[in-house]
Simulated assay, not measured.
Amino acid sequence: MKKEEFLQAVEELEKALKHVSFEEIKTVADEIIDAFKKGHTLFICGNGGSAADAQHMAAEFVNRFLKEREPLPAIALTTDTSNITSIANDYSFDNVFEKQLKALSKSGDILIGISTSGNSKNIVRAFETAREIGVKTVGLLGRDGGVLRNISDYAIVVKSHSTPRIQEVHTFIIHAICQMVEDAFA
């Protein structure tokens, strides 16, 4: 790794701060706050590094981010390997999130899909299923937002073509959302 790569990461974050709407991030946090106050659940999904981001975000809500507070109901749909592998084996990997969402969610819940391309088929299918159930959708996306940009209730797009840089900005946005939500409950 070279010093230039660190500087590139800082540049991407600065660029994202210019192009990512703070108001949209705040609106998403407010939607999550409202859902939690009404007894609803936050579901989060992604693939690869974005799966790790989904698990990270769920843990920040279930445990805590910075302050002591009661646990908040968040589930990463990326963690149950028995469900994921049985669904992928019996149907398709494209179904791994939608099947779990059908089993676990209800109208009023929220689904965050994290995709650096915005085109992950399993997240697209989960968003289509969410719409049928009445689950609000938030796309945390990269590049031009892909297909998910157009089918999300809220789309936060990091305009970059570098997957590592997109993921770094996604982490920043996840932490911002976690802090705003936690401030409402701590």
Rank of each mutant, 00 (worst) to 15 (best):
K3F: 15
E4W: 00
Q8W: 05
V10C: 09
E12K: 12
L13E: 11
K15S: 15
A16T: 03
A16D: 07
K18S: 06
H19T: 14
H19N: 14
S21F: 07
S21G: 09
K26G: 07
V28P: 04
V28H: 03
V28N: 03
A29G: 14
D30H: 07
E31M: 11
A35Q: 02
F36C: 03
K38S: 13
T41Y: 04
F43C: 11
C45V: 14
N47E: 13
N47G: 09
G49M: 04
G49D: 02
A51H: 11
A51R: 07
A52S: 15
A54L: 09
H56W: 13
H56F: 12
M57K: 09
A58Y: 06
A58N: 04
E60L: 12
F65V: 05
F65A: 03
K67Y: 14
K67D: 10
E68I: 05
R69Q: 09
L72K: 04
A74V: 11
I75T: 14
L77P: 07
L77R: 08
T79I: 06
D80M: 02
D80V: 01
N83V: 10
N83F: 15
T85Q: 05
T85K: 06
S86C: 13
N89W: 09
D90A: 10
N95Y: 15
F97W: 08
F97S: 02
E98D: 14
Q100H: 02
K102Q: 15
L104G: 00
S105L: 02
K106Q: 15
K106S: 14
S107K: 15
D109M: 01
L111K: 13
I112P: 01
I112V: 15
I112D: 03
I114D: 02
I114T: 00
S115V: 06
S117G: 08
G118N: 01
S120F: 04
K121A: 15
I123N: 07
I123R: 05
V124Y: 00
E128S: 06
E128V: 06
T129K: 12
A130D: 09
R131T: 11
E132D: 12
I133G: 00
G134N: 00
K136N: 02
K136P: 01
T137Y: 10
T137Q: 12
V138S: 12
G139A: 05
L140M: 09
L140N: 08
G142N: 05
G142T: 05
G145Y: 04
G145F: 01
G145C: 05
G146K: 06
V147L: 13
V147F: 14
L148Q: 09
R149E: 15
N150S: 10
I151T: 07
Y154C: 01
V157G: 10
V158E: 07
S160G: 07
H161W: 12
H161C: 02
S162M: 08
S162I: 02
T163C: 10
R165P: 05
Q167I: 04
H170L: 04
H170S: 09
F172D: 00
I173C: 06
I173E: 07
I177H: 04
Q179W: 03
Q179F: 07
Q179L: 10
M180G: 00
D183V: 00
F185H: 01
